[in-house]
Simulated assay, not measured.
Amino acid sequence: MLEGVTATNVRLPLTPLPRPRSVLFAPGNRADLVAKLPRSAPDAVVIDLEDAIPADPDAKTAARPVARDAARDLIACAPHLNVFLRVNAVHSPYFEADLAALTPELAGVVVPKLESAQDVQQVVDTLRTRGLDLPLMAGLETGAGVWNARQIMEHPAVGWAYFGAEDYTTDLGGVRTAGGLEVLYARSQVALAARLAGVPALDIVVTALNNEAVFREDAGQGRALGYSGKLCIHPAQVALAHDIFGATPAQLTRARALLQAAHEAAALGHGAFSFEGQMVDEPMLAAARAILAAGPQPQQTEEA
């Protein structure tokens, strides 16, 4: 929290964001698009000062006040929406100036291309010089970032992480393909590191905006690898992400019934029991708990 800011002028509480299924982006220089972000009911939104803004000093400078004001307006209109702002990379010439666009009401800061725990600490220290204490969503988008993924995500300031396939492939000098084999190792590494660090990880962007089949296939791969949700760059992708990374009503009902049966068996002193003709073990119970954790989250009803 910004030093000197009291609870009377900071909006609390935010909707909890333990495992976001969808994180929807909008360009920081387009206040009109930022205002529309709540309409598709994403779990979180990101106002972007990095990739969505040309790498030009004048363009970056012009975008910052627009992004700051758009964030404040969005928070005022949708006070329970988790609103993030993505700054440029910590070692870029734009990073420190981007901090002027931050506001303490934000749910957090998205920082791309982090490569070490030292990078994370540099971000934290720089934020603190401005009186800001915001959690970070860490972007793992380079060879070094993927290699050091676990130490980055174990930093206490990091609450979430995402894998960026496009920048990762560019950093390695590779080529993106439709099958995605070139990023399978890194994609798996980030998911594994996130699991060990206890941090929700968000899967790669799908740039085919009008191809539902491509999005579903790619998101299904991410779900199978252990990602909690998807980065979305079009409102139509949000519902698809919720479908794939959430849980169906039937799955939720079965998971609740299984856990209730386990509770009743334990009350009777039974260490082992059967459910729907199947012997139950701890991995099955853990899977049921995970299904409930991935179940539908409260939907945003506010319209910007």
Rank of each mutant, 00 (worst) to 15 (best):
T126G: 10
T169P: 06
D125A: 13
G159R: 13
G180P: 06
E182C: 04
V183W: 10
V123F: 04
A138G: 09
P112F: 04
I152H: 05
L172A: 08
Y185I: 11
T142A: 10
G173E: 01
F163R: 00
G173T: 00
T169V: 15
Q122Y: 07
R150C: 05
E141N: 01
D171Q: 00
W147L: 14
T170E: 10
E166V: 11
L181F: 13
E166H: 09
A193D: 12
A165Q: 15
L132C: 06
E154W: 00
G139V: 02
K113H: 10
L140S: 10
L140W: 03
D119K: 13
Q122V: 04
A144W: 03
Q118A: 15
G173N: 02
G173I: 00
L132W: 06
G145S: 12
R128W: 01
E154K: 01
D125I: 00
L181S: 14
Y162A: 10
T126M: 13
V175I: 14
Q121M: 10
K113A: 05
T129A: 06
G139D: 05
G145I: 00
L140P: 06
D119V: 01
R128D: 10
W160P: 07
P156F: 10
T126V: 01
A178N: 07
A178L: 13
N148Y: 04
D167N: 13
V175M: 15
G173L: 01
G159F: 02
V123W: 04
G174F: 08
E182W: 04
G143H: 11
P135S: 07
V110K: 09
V120M: 04
G159N: 03
P135R: 11
H155C: 07
G164V: 08
L132K: 02
G173H: 01
D125C: 03
D167S: 11
A161C: 14
A144K: 14
D133P: 02
G164S: 12
T169N: 08
W160E: 03
L132H: 10
V120P: 07
P135L: 01
T142M: 07
R187F: 02
G164R: 10
L192A: 15
V109K: 12
G131V: 07
A165I: 05
T169C: 13
T170Q: 13
G164M: 12
E154V: 00
L181Y: 12
R187Q: 13
L132Y: 15
T129I: 01
R187K: 14
T142E: 05
V175G: 00
A193F: 09
V123E: 04
H155L: 04
W160M: 12
R128A: 15
L134I: 12
L140Q: 05
V110G: 02
V120K: 00
G173V: 00
G164F: 13
W147S: 11
V146P: 04
E115M: 09
G159W: 01
A144V: 02
Q151W: 00
R130P: 05
Q189P: 00
Q121G: 06
G145T: 06
L181A: 15
V109E: 08
A149F: 05
V190A: 09
V175L: 15
V124R: 12
G159V: 06
L140C: 09
V111I: 14
N148W: 02
T170N: 13
